[in-house]
Design a protein around this nucleic acid. Sequence first.
DNA 1: GCCAACGTTGGC
DNA 2: GCCAACGTTGGC
Length: 136
Amino acid sequence: MNYWIIKSEPHKYAWEKFLIDGRTHWDGVRNYQARNNLQAMREGDLALFYHSNEGKEIVGVAKVVREAYPDTSSTEPQWVMVDFAPVETLPKPVTLAAIKANPDLQNIGLLRQSRLSVIALKPEEFDKLLLMAHTD
DNA sequence: GCCAACGTTGGC
DNA sequence: GCCAACGTTGGC
């Protein structure tokens, strides 16, 4: 099982919309590194849903319900999309500031490559972030 | 609105 | 193959 962070600007696609939809296509990725991460995802993998620009916090957990297949929003064949479904809304969102302040999370991809929209997470980073979301 | 990071493009 | 120019993302 692998763990990921997927980023979305709330005004483009917010967690709240995701909850209502119940399932979504993660399309529109046009960056090779992010695409490679999408292709490495397996059904059942968990991904943290991060709100970029506005909020700047991890708000929920999603799971992969369909592995990479051709992105219908592109005419170019090299791009793929993945389907996700919501798993859990975090009781306490994990802010970027809180991540930056945590010595255990200094090497997290979210900080090291802030521009990447699909980021791999180590299991221990995932656990740590979930713990932060469930404790005060 | 500015700027840093970084990917892409195109001239040579 | 190098590198400058430019575009995009996202934090501040």
